[in-house]
Amino acid sequence: MKKYSITKIVSFLGLMVAGMSYAQSNDNYVQSTTCLNDDCSKKSEIITYFDGLGRAKQIINVKATPTGKDLVTSVTYDGFGRQGKNILPVPVATQNSLIHSGITNESTANSYYGVSNAFTEKEIENSPLDRVL
Rank of each mutant, 00 (worst) to 15 (best):
K2I: 14
K2S: 13
K3Y: 12
K3I: 13
K3L: 14
Y4P: 11
Y4C: 11
S5P: 13
K8V: 09
F12T: 13
F12L: 15
L13E: 02
G14F: 14
M16Q: 07
G19K: 07
M20Q: 04
A23I: 06
Q24E: 07
S25H: 11
N26E: 11
Q31M: 08
Q31G: 00
Q31C: 08
T34A: 10
T34K: 15
C35L: 09
D38C: 07
D39C: 10
D39I: 07
C40V: 05
C40W: 10
S41N: 15
S41W: 12
K43I: 03
S44M: 12
E45D: 07
E45M: 14
I47F: 05
T48E: 14
T48G: 06
F50P: 15
F50I: 09
D51N: 15
L53A: 09
G54S: 12
G54V: 05
G54K: 13
R55G: 05
R55P: 15
R55D: 12
A56N: 12
Q58K: 03
I59D: 06
I59M: 14
K63R: 12
A64T: 05
P66Q: 04
G68R: 11
G68Y: 07
G68E: 09
K69D: 04
D70K: 03
L71W: 05
V72L: 05
V72G: 02
V72C: 03
S74E: 05
T76R: 09
F80K: 09
G81N: 04
R82Y: 07
R82I: 00
Q83H: 04
Q83E: 09
G84V: 08
G84K: 03
I87W: 11
L88N: 06
L88E: 02
P91G: 01
V92C: 05
A93M: 08
A93C: 00
T94W: 01
Q95D: 02
N96K: 03
S97Q: 13
S97H: 10
I99E: 04
I99K: 02
H100E: 05
H100F: 00
S101Y: 13
I103Q: 02
T104L: 04
N105E: 05
N105M: 03
S107E: 13
T108C: 06
T108R: 06
A109T: 00
S111V: 06
S111Q: 04
Y113H: 08
N117Y: 03
F119N: 01
K122Y: 11
I124M: 10
I124K: 10
P128N: 09
L129E: 13
D130M: 03
R131E: 13
R131M: 15
L133K: 15
L133C: 08
L133R: 12
L133G: 07
